[in-house]
């Protein structure tokens, strides 16, 4: 590559959000992607190194190129994967990226975390601020490494004051081809809902998240921020908008039944996820909005309908 501008490294670039970021960012910056998966539909001027983040080769990418910033979203969440692999990929991968950033003089690190780190709970305030404790692990052992990633980034923020570190905790990300748990759930024609429970939920469009990640690259931005989309709606209103007909299941039955179905691989949602459709896990995104002047581009209706591919 003849491009000798300082690059922005994007980890997890082959994922849905990664591709969105690449497409928005390559118009103005030199983009250097790292992902062990192939990058389908890669724009010509985006470089891609196909390597596992945990491997030594990640160091090389930083050594050989002048890197001015990192957007780290090489974090996976797959309930079917063994806890060990999951943990190793997320935590060791993040550790390596942060080490490289510190060693090779990167000036800016943006880490994608999630509002799920707070965890749904009947004790939650309606809108959690950034200083709320990260309680998700108490009920969801499977998200423990996502919390660890968030904490690693948080620790890095304090340890390296010379680097502008931004940790972003967006609400449920949805989008046309996004394959995460909330998007898949909303696509179900006959989804389960817990009878008598209709919690308020917050959604954000994948392209809006892309814009936030890029905005976080601006000089001066640093710290931990919740990021919200166009607002809050009851879960029932989301399904009404989508024209889906939920099945009401008593919550006392739902847990043991889903536990069994999941165990025999007949369901793809672990039973702990039921907390998300029973209790609140909403955040206050006003700090990010105030400090960056951010507003979502997609309306509530567009954000909801995006899961249908519209």
């Amino acid at each position: 590559m003849s491009d000798d501008r300082a690059a922005v490294v994007v980890t997890g670039i082959s994922g849905n959000l990664g591709r969105v970021v690449a497409k928005q960012l390559h118009l103005s910056e030199r983009v250097l992607g790292i992902d062990r998966r192939p990058f389908v539909g890669r724009p010509k001027d985006v470089e891609h190194v196909q390597v596992d983040l945990r491997k030594k080769k990640t160091d090389e990418v930083f050594r050989r190129n002048r890197v001015k910033a990192v957007i780290h979203m090489g974090i996976l969440h797959d309930p079917r994967m063994s806890a060990e692999d999951h943990h190793s990929f997320n935590v060791l991968g993040t550790t390596r990226v942060l080490e490289c950033a510190a060693r090779y003089g990167v000036k800016k690190v943006v880490v994608l975390s999630s509002a799920n780190v707070y965890g749904p709970s009947p004790n939650n305030s309606n809108f959690l601020t950034e200083d709320a404790p990260l309680m998700a692990a108490s009920r969801f052992p499977s998200v423990r490494d996502l919390i660890e990633v968030d904490m690693l980034a948080h620790g890095f923020f304090w340890k390296h004051p010379e680097i502008e570190t931004v940790v972003l905790r967006p609400v449920h990300i949805v989008g046309p081809s996004v394959k995460n748990a909330p998007s898949n759930y909303l696509r179900l024609e006959r989804p389960w809902v817990m009878s008598g429970f209709d919690p308020m939920v917050q959604l954000i469009h994948v392209e809006d998240v892309g814009r936030v990640l890029i905005d976080a690259l601006k000089p001066g931005r640093k710290g931990v921020y919740n990021v919200v989309g166009p607002g809050e709606v009851p879960l029932s209103a989301v399904f009404r908008e989508l024209g889906h007909r939920p099945r009401s299941v008593p919550h006392v039955l739902a847990r043991p039944v889903l536990h069994t179905l999941f165990k025999y691989r007949l369901a793809s949602y672990p039973p702990e996820e039921l907390d998300h459709i029973q209790f609140l896990c909403m955040v206050d995104g006003s700090r990010w909005a105030a400090e960056s002047g951010w507003t979502p581009r997609f309306s509530m209706r567009e954000t909801i309908r995006s899961v249908l591919g519209e």
Binding site: M200, V233, R301
Partner: peptide
């Protein structure tokens, strides 16, 4: 209230 008839608290 938003277009779905609820305020942020539900």
């Amino acid at each position: 209230e938003n277009e779905y008839g609820v305020d942020p608290f539900g």
